[in-house]
């Protein structure tokens, strides 16, 4: 008969099998696996409470869950959006920084510098637009601020050189 520790190990093995089929960001994978772990643990607990042998419970829960097919379905669901996220995370700050760089040049083509730039409303409009667009896309301040930080880092480089 399987002990609680053994059933835990079997759930770990199911999770490893699912993780092996995922090629997503570490945060996405961590959240998916945490959610799946909860499901498997709840299902095994329920089955054992109903009097099922823990060994059988783990096996049956794994089959019912579809360990073999779920990784592919999760990958198909999340991968396109992860790619889109990465593209947006690159395009938004680069585009914003390029626009900002364009704004730093006066019509004659000479660099206006930060002193001039800071007085132009367009600097703040571009900056706020980059932040707002990231926030609208990601719905998370953490990601939006990371994109915004990247935008400012690029801007400093683009404007300085």
């Amino acid at each position: 008969m399987m002990s609680e520790q053994d059933s835990h190990l079997s759930i770990e093995s199911a999770l490893r099998q699912i993780a092996a089929g995922l090629r997503l960001s570490s945060q996405t994978e961590r959240e998916l696996l945490e959610e799946i772990r909860g499901h498997l643990e709840d299902a095994v607990d329920d089955a054992v409470r109903r009097g099922q042998d823990p060994d059988d419970a783990v096996r049956e829960v794994g089959e019912r869950f579809g360990v073999a097919v779920v990784a592919e379905a999760l990958q198909d669901e999340h991968a396109p959006w992860e790619s889109a996220d990465a593209i947006v995370a690159c395009i938004l700050p680069v585009a914003g920084a390029l626009i900002l760089r364009w704004l730093t040049f006066v019509p004659a083509g000479s660099a206006a510098g930060w002193g001039f730039l800071l007085l132009r409303p367009s600097l703040w409009v571009v900056s706020v637009l980059v932040l707002a667009a990231s926030l609208l896309y990601y719905h998370r301040w953490r990601y939006a601020l990371a994109v915004w930080g990247f935008f400012w880092a690029l801007s400093l480089i683009f404007v300085a050189f």
Binding site: D42, F65, V70, D76
Partner: peptide
């Protein structure tokens, strides 16, 4: 997720039985 899966099985008498993991995608 697990609660949804159980509830679906209970209400349908298992008619809509599917691999529970496919609920997540």
């Amino acid at each position: 997720g697990y609660q949804i899966s159980r509830e679906l099985a209970r209400r349908s008498g298992g008619y809509f039985d599917m691999k529970e993991g496919l609920l997540y995608p």
